[in-house]
Every structure is written in structure tokens, then in C-alpha cells.
């Protein structure tokens, strides 16, 4: 039951990542920044999918809401960066609480479909509310404070936000609330008859996941200096689910590995063929059919077969 030495490894990993701008070219700095953003997004989704056992297919909604909120606040309303970030998270959380309130009444596939429906509602608003969101063409030309306007300083800014998010999510997942989520995932009836209000716990998980997705989205908006409706489209929700699956949903850090794997694969494969999606599709079929616990599952499989990462409780 003891959390294993995950903390040291995570700090070591963050340290290595921090070295990227020192040793790598601009290209790798950009790649790593994108990975950090999507890793945070995937971590937030895993709260729902991995911990709470609720398959959301509309998580991109909150990613997009956070992103649009942030670029609109900083650019249209010229709000300070930190306040914009905070407000973006808050707005995403409120949206998630409102949407979640309806969605958590449903289970399993119905839940997945309803979250998908809401994310498409967000997408449709993003493409049609042109005066505010920039419509089909997206919101372009977001302004950034000088401090983070060059790629390297932005990289460290993203790393800071990512690390904060990672630590907070880790604390949440190992909290008593985290245990309650796992209990619900494992056996909802039993959890109910321990005296838990399952719906409220699922709603709280949904809201937290939405808030962190919003934070990741805000980072993306700043990174791209704009936000595009594709970020709310259902394929974006599909992509982040793929990251969670690739990395391993029964592990806290898995989604980070998944996000990194997906980006690195894409970069590598794009050098050989323009048909990256077909390669990804085949890889996914392999993962689903052969290694459903993802990269983290493979890694822990090397260490110890059937170790406690299966419980999802205390794996790193």
C-alpha cells in the first residue's frame, strides 16, 4: 500500500525535461511544450476515466472553454495573464459543474454520449459566435506578456504550470476523495452502501477534471497565440482518450507517457509518410488488443507481474 518511489522519479523526470532547452534545438523545445500541454489535458481526463471509471467522450469541451476564455480575456479584455489563467480555470470548472450535473445522472455509454453531445454544443458555439470567438477561422492574434513571449521562456512557463497541475492532481488522486473515486469505479453499489453520495462524488470529479482541462487549454491558447474550434471537436476528445489509453489509464503518470508517445510517434512517422493516421490506427488496434494497460502497464509488467498498479490506488 505504500506509494513507491514515484515522487523521486517524477522529480527526476521533470528535471530532465527542464534541460531540454539547454541541450535541444528550438524544434524540440516546441515539441516538448506541446507534449506538456497535452499531458496535462490527458492527466485531467484520467481523473474521470482511470480513477472514477466514467468514460467521457467530450472532455475537449473544457479544454476549448479554458483556451478561448484565456485568449479572449488576455487579448479582447486585456486582463493580466495570471488573472486570465485563474479565470479560465474557474470558467471551465463552472461549465464542467453545470454540464456534469446533467451528465452524472447517466452511466457508462449513455454518459459518454451525453458528454460528447455537450462538447459538440461547445464546438458549434465556438464556430458560430464569430464576434467573440472568431468563428470558423478561430481566434487569432492573442497577445502574450513579454516575459513568456519567446519559446524558451514559454517552455519554462508551461513546465511550471504543468508541474503545479501534476502535483495538485497527484494530491487529489491520493486523497480520501481519490479513494472514494476508485471505490466508485470498482463497485458503485458497494460505495453507495458505505454511505457515499455517488453522484456528488462523480460530479466533483467531473468538475475537477474540467478545471484542469481548462488550464491545459489556456496554455494551448497562449502557446498558439490563438484558439481554434477544432479543439472542441469530437476527434480532439478522441485523441486525448488515446493518450490516456496509450499511456495506461490504471496509472497516475500513464497519461503523460501516452501524450509523449503520441507526439513523438507522430513526429517520427511524419518523416516517412503523410498518412500518419493510418499508422496510429494500426498501433491503436495493437494496443487495444494486445496491451490494454498501455505503456505504464508494459513498464510495470517488466517489474512485477500483476503488481498493485492494477488497483490504481498507489501506483506512481
Amino acid at each position: 500500500m505504500r506509494p513507491r518511489g514515484g515522487v523521486q522519479w517524477t522529480l527526476f523526470g521533470l528535471f530532465l525535461v527542464a534541460l531540454v532547452p539547454v541541450v535541444g534545438e528550438r524544434y524540440y523545445v516546441d515539441l516538448t511544450t506541446q507534449i506538456l500541454i497535452y499531458a496535462l489535458f490527458a492527466l485531467s481526463l484520467n481523473i474521470l476515466v482511470g480513477y472514477c471509471g466514467n468514460l467521457s467522450f467530450g472532455h475537449a469541451a473544457f479544454f476549448a472553454i479554458g483556451g478561448y476564455a484565456c485568449v479572449i480575456l488576455t487579448t479582447t479584455y486585456e486582463v493580466t495573464l495570471i488573472i486570465s489563467l485563474g479565470l479560465s480555470v474557474l470558467i471551465s470548472a463552472v461549465a464542467a459543474a453545470a454540464i456534469g450535473y446533467v451528465c452524472v445522472r447517466l452511466a457508462a455509454m449513455h454518459f459518454a454520449m451525453l458528454t460528447l453531445a455537450f462538447s459538440m454544443l461547445v464546438w458549434s458555439i465556438a464556430i458560430k459566435w464569430t464576434p467573440v470567438t472568431g468563428g470558423d477561422d478561430g481566434f487569432v492574434g492573442a497577445t502574450l506578456p513579454d516575459l513568456i513571449s519567446n519559446p524558451v521562456s514559454f517552455f519554462y512557463f508551461a513546465l511550471l504550470i504543468f508541474s503545479t497541475g501534476l502535483i495538485l492532481l497527484r494530491v487529489i488522486c491520493t486523497s480520501t476523495f481519490g479513494r472514494a473515486m476508485i471505490a466508485i469505479r470498482e463497485n458503485e453499489t458497494r460505495a453507495t452502501f458505505m454511505g457515499m453520495d455517488v453522484r456528488k462524488i462523480r460530479l466533483q470529479a467531473f468538475t475537477i477534471a474540467g478545471a484542469f482541462a481548462g488550464l491545459a487549454g489556456a496554455l494551448l491558447g497562449l502557446y498558439n497565440r490563438g484558439m481554434y474550434p477544432e479543439s472542441a471537436f469530437w476527434t480532439e476528445s478522441g485523441q486525448v482518450l488515446i493518450m490516456v489509453l496509450l499511456g495506461g489509464m490504471h496509472s497516475f503518470i500513464g497519461p503523460v507517457l501516452g501524450a509523449a508517445a503520441l507526439y513523438i510517434l507522430e513526429t517520427m512517422i511524419n518523416q516517412y509518410t503523410e498518412y500518419w493516421q493510418i499508422v496510429l490506427g494500426v498501433i491503436l488496434l495493437g494496443v487495444v488488443l494486445i496491451a490494454p494497460d498501455g505503456l505504464a502497464g508494459l513498464l510495470s509488467g517488466f517489474r512485477k507481474r500483476k503488481d498493485d498498479s492494477v488497483t490504481g490506488v498507489d501506483s506512481e
Binding site: R2, S175, R179, A180, I182, K200, Q204
Partner: peptide, 21 residues
């Protein structure tokens, strides 16, 4: 442990570490 967490109404607490509780 989960039963104790539920009984003490701690299942909404996101900053209360569960380990060893």
C-alpha cells in the same frame, strides 16, 4: 479504509491524504 472515509464524511476532501489513514 474506504468505509471509514465514507463514515467520517471525508469522501469529498481532496487535500486529505488517504495514505495510512
Amino acid at each position: 479504509q474506504v468505509a471509514f472515509i465514507a463514515r467520517n464524511r471525508e469522501h469529498f476532501k481532496i487535500f486529505a491524504a488517504a495514505y495510512g489513514k
